[in-house]
Amino acid sequence: MRAITIRQPYADAIVQSSPMPKRIENRSWPLPARYVGVPVLLHSAAAPERHPILPDAWAIPTLYGDRADQLGAILARVTFTGCHMAGDGCDERCADWGHRQVFHWDIANVTPLPSPVPAKGQQQFWAPAADVLASVQQQIEAVA
């Protein structure tokens, strides 16, 4: 299973079940076809985004969880269901979370892990170490 690293607070916005979950990932490159419909691990980067662009509702801390401070760890399993360029095929999910002039990757089937699994991330899609995968798999089976 592959993983993708996303900076906080964006990783938290995907993982949390909030009134306005982030179901779009903004990237400068299109989602590779081989990852459409395939479960991927969501990893929070070791350093947070310096100047995040967040919807206004994020100013209300009670709407969101407490994982935004969890860095350098796998937080969930997700599935990317498709990809489109900003403006082409956008819907209500893009209104709050989609950035302009980038690709929007559609996110579904978010399964948060009960406990984050520490791991060192990489750019692009990457393969976690065997012990990390084993720990993640054990947690996913426990929640299923």
Rank of each mutant, 00 (worst) to 15 (best):
D69T: 13
L113A: 07
Y35M: 13
Q139I: 09
R100V: 11
D12K: 11
P30Q: 12
R67M: 10
Q122A: 15
W126M: 04
A47R: 15
L54F: 04
N109L: 09
H51Q: 15
V117R: 08
Q122M: 14
R7T: 05
P9L: 06
H84R: 07
V15A: 11
P52V: 04
G89F: 03
P30K: 13
C90G: 12
F80P: 00
A68Y: 05
H51D: 15
E92S: 12
A57P: 07
Q138L: 12
P39A: 02
F125N: 06
A47L: 14
H104M: 03
E92V: 08
I107D: 05
S18G: 11
I74D: 07
L133Y: 01
A3Y: 03
D96S: 12
F103W: 15
F125I: 11
I140T: 11
R23Y: 04
R27T: 06
Q16N: 14
D96H: 12
H51T: 14
G82D: 05
K22S: 11
A127H: 14
D56Q: 09
A129M: 09
P9M: 08
D12A: 15
A3I: 01
F103N: 10
R34D: 08
A86Y: 07
A73G: 01
R2T: 06
A86H: 11
A45L: 01
